[in-house]
Write a protein that binds this DNA or RNA. Structure first.
Lengths: 342, 342
DNA sequence: GACGCAATCCGAAACGTTTCGGATTTATGG
DNA sequence: CCATAAATCCGAAACGTTTCGGATTGCGTC
């Protein structure tokens, strides 16, 4: 474990200058920077992060805290999330830390103590809920954080989000234009920001078209293939009041819906139109559906670099105004939509 | 950010004594410990880990480094791994850190620099290969680490492993006893420690029975459902020299094998016997197969606590001899095995 | 009252880095 | 050769904790 002092002795320089050389400061000559770099390699020097943290007050680490319940396939995306974020923070010279709480732990004390410990320069929040208490806590404590999603429409914190309102609004609008009036929404669970926004967009479109909202056409469940299947089966129980169109919250739900519709011998799009939002999830592609699925898309994978960038900036400049980004959504019409049946 | 000095002033004690109180040392009275605890809560004191690390030389963090390639379903178990380990280390007061390398990165320099940085008290190694170079590196650098699996039969490092030799040996032995001689092994990719051991166990059993090893009956691929299907289809291409029994490396392979056998109209176990090793993976249970699958089992999930325990001990006592644990394997005979067909 | 022992306490140094303020050297132009 | 500015360099303090060695107190015993 070579230290700066070792290097300085070895080179006949002051510790100060060696430190500045290593951190590439302006007032050290090219030549000495070179010499220092070489000596560092030779002696196997690596900066002691604890010592640096102690004086700078920054640890170079950001953390993501997650409940530990493994709820099956829904957790696939978590893996993408953490590997995406880990990579992006790594690029920016930060360590990304994952803290998985034991199942059943109350998260707030965990956030509280992580924030007071001062060991972390920033937090990443995912699975955001409306009026998420974590946002309130971290804001109050003055710790930098970035949110995947918005905790409320007028949020004044850093976030990266997709336009979930728009997603559902446009899908519904399109289907209404095709003459559909009984449009079911297979949504995520209540309380999550994304599902609430989607519900609002959906309701807005209905309202604009003068179609009244029917709670029986709203499903709020974990967005898995199995739930898509089951929800669809139930929606079509009553053949008379069945929906003529389905808006699916993600492509897993859509896959389940396709299976159920097939089993019940409904044709897509002649009998039922199906559309979905597509995060581009683990290799399931809407274009490979038969008939090919009409989707809105906004790749999940794009968000990691934005989230990392936003958080790193917030850490470097804590007084800057919040950075907020709502990503574009792209609509791709394929073969799963058609005019409403008589 | 309250510090020890703040506390000491507030209490009229020395910094020394406050520190010792907080760390629950012996030579501070119950009464003052109580007072200190209270004041700490009141002032919102949390120990500064950087400062502590600086003097103790320990960071309280262990790290797992992983390549970033997301190879689909095979990565499901990674999620179990990291959440399992994260939880177990958390219990023991350690932070578990996950470092995901960008795809295509050469791992050795990453291990090298992580080890020299001194920021981590220990390493967890998974996906072990025979004569794994990471083991050599960390051993040489004298950094504590624990391996999931063994890098070689006479390894002198800390590890937790299951008896993979035994797994394949016993399965093969049982099938041989039923009269099978053409027994295929659907194994994991070459090079990984577990698959090499299994291959050896398989060969040993054959040898003991005087059956010669046929390379055409060995498949070495990623253990996914798809590969199980394809490998089985190919193994049965030649109806005359087809195998009469299949040993599957995990339950996904077995599932694929069942599908393929069903499609080719082979009956289990009348025409083909199938056995598998079962790590107890993401809710796929061998008992739910039809016919119910004969398996060896050794729950994956048991290993996290062992690995964490072993590593924490190694960190606290670096000179202790390596701790090595080979877990029991349980054999459960169900309905997928029978005598060899004529 | 003196002694010894245990129970508590304390001052100071150390860990390895960054940074502030100033000092020294080197080049530049007259 | 001098004055000035720019380019390099340096000493010392500070960050918050742990720990070493020793100091103080209280208490029971003779």
């Amino acid at each position: 474990m070579a230290t700066l002092k070792d290097l300085s002795k070895h080179l006949g320089l002051s510790v100060t200058q060696v430190s500045r050389a290593i951190n590439d400061h302006a007032d050290v000559s090219q030549k000495t920077k070179e010499r220092v770099r070489e000596a560092a390699k030779e002696l196997g020097y690596a900066v002691n992060r604890s010592a640096r943290s102690l004086v700078t007050g920054k640890s170079g680490m950001v953390i993501l805290i997650r409940p530990g319940a493994l709820s099956g396939p829904a957790d696939m995306s978590v893996l993408e999330t953490i590997s995406g974020l880990s990579g992006e923070f790594h690029k920016r010279g930060m360590q990304f830390l994952l803290n998985i709480m034991p199942p059943g732990t109350d998260p707030m004390p965990v956030y509280q103590s992580a924030a007071t410990s001062g060991s972390f320069d920033g937090f990443v929040l995912i699975d955001t809920r409306r009026d998420d208490p974590r946002v309130a806590l971290l804001t109050e404590m003055g710790v930098p954080f970035v949110v995947h999603g918005r905790s409320d429409p007028a949020a004044d914190h850093n976030y990266y989000d997709i336009d979930n309102h728009q997603v559902a609004y446009t899908h519904a609008k399109n289907l209404l234009a095709l003459g559909h009036t009984r449009i079911a929404l297979l949504n995520g669970p209540r309380g999550y920001a994304y599902s609430e926004y989607r519900l609002q967009g959906y309701q807005k479109a209905l309202e604009e078209a003068g179609v009244s909202f029917d709670p029986a056409l709203l499903v709020s469940e974990q967005m898995t293939e199995g739930n898509g299947m089951i929800a669809t089966a139930r929606l079509f129980e009553d053949k008379v009041h069945r929906p003529t169109a389905l808006i699916c919250g993600n492509i897993l739900l859509a896959k389940g819906a396709y299976t159920a519709l097939g089993a019940m011998e409904y044709r897509i799009p002649e009998d039922v139109s199906v559309v979905s939002h597509d995060d581009v999830l683990h290799n399931i592609r809407g274009s490979a559906f038969y008939p090919a699925l009409t989707v809105s898309r906004s790749p999940f994978a794009n968000s990691w670099s934005h989230l990392a960038e936003i958080l790193c900036n917030a850490i470097q400049n804590p007084t800057a105004p919040p950075h907020q980004h709502v990503a574009e959504v792209e609509f791709i019409e394929r073969a799963s939509t058609g005019p409403a049946p008589k």
